[in-house]
Design a protein around this nucleic acid. Structure first.
Lengths: 299, 299
DNA sequence: GTTCCGCATGAATCGATAG
DNA sequence: ACTATCGATTCATGCGGAA
């Protein structure tokens, strides 16, 4: 592991840290993105501040201004993304005055006008979503994962995210005792999904556009924005080893840590210093340890 | 069960059949809706014909014209719905030229301009979705269930859709063991794991806005677009016994049959005669038998 | 009567072929 | 070129027949 220091002389207070194959920028992504070369990124995977509830960063964007605020960023993402690349946006509108806000819908329409193709909308089903009880509403247990592309011919590595056959969740598990479950789960920790398939020893099936992942509560150090298995799934699906993954709203660096561990080059940008430091620390650790990714669960 | 004949003298070829507490209209809902009284319906639950690229198919609505086609219907629905009522729209955009079409997004925006409140978007996860394999896309396994209201104060009977543990009797063991595995793996700190154990002693659990239902595809008697448990859930959630439920795109009458069985008054409109006949026959049968609703499964 | 296995069946989508 | 049609692909589910 090597840590070096670099500077961008076009900016006022440039801070860059590289750690292995990861590069972390501290600053406003609207600025920093302009310094990245065109058509150099294979996958942009990000969960922008609003979905993260990080209201203080980026001046607390109110939903009505969200589209206008996001479009310049998206324009840069379009530029730095390879023609065969993919842009995955994790977002979910909140309730305002009793309604779901429409800024995500408007964002999709605006991005298309910008030239993006709205290829797909994945659903992330959060199994253990935030608890709560309201008289006119149930708990929100899903988020959008919007897939955008520059071209209809983009890179997709479906085999990398294949699943054990559906029989696994049905009859198979029924016959196993509880101790069997525990034992096999322990095995799974090192395998990141593949082991599960081998465990059954049967054919694999392709997943759907619905992702079943539990939100991680295990990590105490940072408020888990999303589980590692979420970016891991998209990193494996839309990039291969040696590709470059970009997260312009890095946060605590979940996407970067995963991309790094999966042998991708990664670029992260974060405007808040405490998050930046957190992410850097995390990448360093990931660089050293062989800690495994959390097991993914899809159905 | 009584079957009577009525006529609407404002229309050219009016056909109405009433069967018990259900009333079925044969004709174009844009016309027939105008004959229904204002503020008389508690729940509109419908799954309109999807926009389709084939002209021969039902309705033959081109996606680009979908919003313009739907708005007059929605205007009438707004009129006939009670202020405390709810409008649930089951819809999903298909892929056109490699992209998800945006007409659903545009429809939501247009409906809001019409005065509707976009209260919530439920996700119906179709566990057994249509098969297929493509180089750039996975199978589509979810549909939208858009909830619209006239007012922020609408009727909602959450207790009616709470998930009784008893309903799981067939698969409870599987569910528990599965969840136990996850708990052990996640080392959950928030007490979520304990909750799982409490489920056994607890009577009921509130659902989320994600519904897990399989499509009833190969049902010999009738192959419905959606399973009965889907409308059953919303009928129970947004209406009570003696309320009036309307489906302006009745199809084979799944929603009506369910509403009828749940002691609601129901009104169905269908433009195609073969579907109309099918629905009528179905209501008659439902009127006679005490067949239970398909078991619902949420996770 | 149970359980198990085989089979038809979908609110799908792409790419090639035909008009 | 642009649109309509068709074949190939794929998998959870319910039903019927077999053990």
């Amino acid at each position: 592991m090597s840590v070096s220091f670099a500077s961008l002389d076009t900016m006022a207070n440039p801070v860059v840290r590289s750690c292995g194959s990861a590069m972390l920028y501290l600053g406003d992504c609207r600025e920093i993105l302009t310094s990245l070369p065109s058509s150099s990124v294979d996958l942009v995977m990000t969960s922008p501040p609003y979905a993260d509830r990080r209201k203080n960063s980026y001046g607390g964007i109110v939903p009505d201004n969200y589209v206008a605020w996001f479009l310049p960023v998206a324009e840069q993402l379009f530029r730095v993304l390879k023609p065969s690349g993919t842009f995955v946006l994790n977002i979910k509108e909140k309730v305002y005055n009793g309604e779901r806000h429409t800024f995500v819908l408007e964002l999709i329409l605006a991005l298309r006008k910008q030239g993006w193709l709205w290829t797909e909308e994945f659903v992330w089903h959060k199994k253990n979503c935030y608890p709560g009880k309201w008289p006119n509403r149930f708990r929100d247990a899903w988020e959008r994962l919007l897939q955008f592309n520059k071209s209809r011919h983009f890179s997709m590595y479906q085999e990398a995210v294949m699943l054990p056959v559906g029989d696994w969740s049905g009859r198979r598990l029924e016959n196993l005792s509880e101790t069997d479950c525990k034992r096999d789960n322990a095995k799974n920790e090192s395998g990141f999904g593949k082991k599960v398939a081998n465990w059954i020893g049967r054919d694999k099936v392709y997943p759907t556009n619905v992702l079943h992942l539990a939100t991680e509560c295990a990590n105490r150090t940072h408020s888990a924005a999303f589980p590692e298995s979420l970016p891991a799934w998209f990193v494996q699906l839309f990039s291969k080893e040696g590709d470059k993954v970009l997260d312009p709203f890095m946060g605590s660096g979940t996407t970067l840590a995963v991309a790094n561990r999966l042998q991708r080059f990664s670029v992260g940008i974060e405007i808040k210093k405490d998050y930046f430091d957190l992410a850097l620390e995390r990448i360093k650790k990931a660089q050293n340890s062989n800690s495994s990714l959390t097991r993914q669960m899809f159905r």
